[in-house]
Design a protein around this nucleic acid. Structure first.
Lengths: 129, 129
DNA sequence: CACCAATATTGATGATTATCGATATTGGTA
DNA sequence: TACCAATATCGATAATCATCAATATTGGTG
C-alpha cells in the first residue's frame, strides 16, 4: 500500500497530486461568500439522501469501478423511475459519470468533487492569522 | 506545523489519534445499510444549506473557536428567528456545541462529525477484496 | 418492420422545510 | 418589582423534492 508524508493541515489531491491546504478551504476555514456556500451546499444536499448514499456505496463497491444501472434498482428497493431520478441528480451534480454501452448504462464515481468536499470539511488545527 | 506519515488509504482521527481506514468507511467503500445511510444523509442534509455553511465558516473563522450568536445575524442577512433556527439544526445534528454565558450564547464546532464525514468521503484507491 | 428490455420523462401527491412576523422566554440590571 | 436585550418558539406560507404509476424513448434483435 502506497504511503507518503502528509501534513495534518494539508491535503494531497488524489488526481493532480498537488498539495492543497484544507485550513484555507472555503467551508471551515473562514467566512464564506454566499455564492461559494451555495455551490457547496448543493453538493451536500445531493448527498443528503439515503438512497443516493446507497447508490454511491454500491458503485464504489464494484471492483471494476462501475455498475450497470439495471443492477441498482433491486438492492435499493425503490421503483425504477425513482432510482433513475437519483442517478440523474448525482450525475448532474458531477458526482457520477455515465457511459452507454448498448441498452445498458454504466455509472462510475467522479473523484474530484468528493475530494473537494473532504478538503472543505477539514477543521483548521491552527488559528487563522 | 506537525506532520506525520499517513497512508493514502488511511486516515487519522484528529481527536482520538487513532488510525481508521476510509476504504472501509460506510459511504464510498461498499454497500451501506439503509440505517447507516440514513444517519449519514442526515448530516449531509444539514450541511446542504448555504446559510448553515456560512454559519460554520464564521464560527471556524474565530481565533477563540467560538462566537456569540448575536454576531451571526447581521453577516448572514437573515432574520434573527431564521438564524436561531439554523443554529438549532446544527446543534441538534451534533455539529455545534453551545454555552450560555449570561444573556449570550456562544457556539463552537464539534470536530468529530466533520472528521467522520471526511472519512466517509474518502474514495477507495484499492479495489475491495 | 415489429417486438422487447433498459432507461428516461411526465404528472401528481404528500412530506419536508426555509423563511418571516409576532410573541414568548430567559437573564441581567436598575 | 419593572424593564431591556438576547434568544427561542409559534404559526403560516411558499418552495423544494422524494416517490410512484403511467408513458415515452432508446437500442438491440428477429
Amino acid at each position: 500500500m502506497m504511503s507518503y508524508n502528509i501534513d495534518v493541515c494539508q491535503y494531497r489531491d488524489m488526481k493532480t497530486r498537488k498539495l492543497t491546504n484544507p485550513c484555507c478551504s472555503p467551508l471551515l476555514a473562514g467566512a464564506i461568500e454566499p455564492e461559494s456556500a451555495a455551490e457547496m451546499a448543493t453538493l451536500f444536499r445531493v448527498l443528503g439522501e439515503p438512497a443516493r448514499l446507497q447508490l454511491l456505496g454500491l458503485i464504489a463497491q464494484q471492483p471494476e469501478g462501475e455498475i450497470c444501472a439495471c443492477d441498482l434498482v433491486e438492492p435499493l428497493g425503490l421503483s425504477q423511475p425513482t432510482v433513475s431520478h437519483h442517478l440523474k441528480v448525482l450525475y448532474e451534480a458531477g458526482l457520477l459519470d455515465k457511459e452507454r454501452r448498448g441498452t445498458w448504462i454504466y455509472y462510475r464515481l467522479v473523484p474530484e468533487p468528493f475530494e473537494r468536499l473532504r478538503a472543505a470539511l477539514a477543521i483548521p488545527q491552527i488559528p487563522q492569522p
